[in-house]
Amino acid sequence: MDDLLAVTGLTVGFATESGLARVLDQVDFRIGRGEIVGLVGESGCGKTTLARAILGVLPANSARISAGSIEFDGRDLLQEDPDALATDIRGRAITFVPQDPFSSFNPVFTIGRQIEELMKWKSPDAEPGSGPRRYARARRSSDLERVLELLRIVQLPDPEALLRKYPHEVSGGQRQRLMIAMALLPEPKLIIADEPTTALDVTIQAQILKLLRRLAAERGVSVLFTTHDLGTAYEICDRMTVMYAGQDVESAPSDSFFTEPRHIYTVRLLQSLPSRDHGIRGIPGQVPDLTAPPPGCRFHPRCDAASALCRQTRPDPSDVGAGHVARCWHPAQGEGTP
C-alpha cells in the first residue's frame, strides 16, 4: 500500500531537569491515503510528541530528534528546510485540530479575522512559496466564499454573523466545528487531530467525531487522531496504533484490534476497560520513568509473559494478521477479548 505518511525508527528525547527523557524510542508509524488512524495510549506515552514531530513543531530548545525519518507524500520532512515546511507543509498539506478549542482561538480577535489570516497564508489558491505580501482582493473574496460554504458544511448556523463574533461568544462545540472547518479549508492531505474532543461534553464529542469522520471520508483526507479513549477511537478509526512509554507496540485494523489484540499491553489495556462483568481493572505496576526507561520492551516490568529476551531486545514489528503488526516476543493467542 502506498502510504501517505511513514514514520520509521523515530527517536526523540527531551532535555529535562532530571536528564534526557527518551520520549520516543524508534517508533514506526504509518497512515495510508484516506485512512483514519487512531494513535492511542495513556497520557505521557508519546502520542502528542509523535503528532507534533510530524507537524514539525516540537519545542526547539528542549527536543532532540536523534534518529529516524518522517516520509510524507514522498518527502522526508526531517531533511526539509524548516522554512519550506512552514510554508507548504504545515497548514497546507498537513493541518491541525487542537485539543482545546476554548484556548486555541486568540481571545482579542474576531473569529473572522483569525480565519482570514489563516486563509491569507494557507488558502488552496495561495501561491506556493514565501507567501503573500498583500492579500489580493479577488482571492480574498473567493476565499470568503469558500469559508462560508465550509462553515455551512460543518453545520454552523448563520456563518456570516459567526465570523463577526469573538471566540468567547461562541460555544465549545461550535468552536471545535470551526477548528475542523479551519483544518479542512487549506484542502490538506492529512489532518492531525490531537485529542480533539477531550475538552468537550460527551454528547458533543460524538457529534464532532462523526462530523470529522464523515468529512474526512468524503474528501479522502487522512486523519491522525490521538486519544486515550479507546471507545472514541473505535467510533471513527479505520486502524489503531497503540503506544506504551514511547514505543509503538501494536497496530491493527479497528475490528481485529478489539477482537484479537496480540501485544500483552494491548490485551491488558482492553481488559482495563470498565465492564459489567468485572468492573474496573487496572494494570499492575507503573509507567516507567522516561529518563531511565527499562531496556528492551518497555512494558516488560509489568508483563507476566516477559522473558529474558524481552528485557534485552525490543522486537521488530512482525505480521500477526491481515494488516496487523505487533512488536511482542510472546504475542497473545486469541485470549483477552474483553
Binding site: 512552514a86 504545515r90 484556548s103 486555541s104 482561538f105 486568540n106 497564508w121
Partner: peptide
C-alpha cells in the same frame, strides 16, 4: 494555545508575534 495553534498551522512566526 492560540499561538501554538497558529504556528502549528504554519502562519509565519513574525506575523504571529507582531500582529497577534
Amino acid at each position: 494555545n492560540y499561538v501554538d495553534y497558529q504556528l502549528a498551522m504554519g502562519v509565519p512566526r513574525r506575523v504571529v508575534v507582531w500582529r497577534y
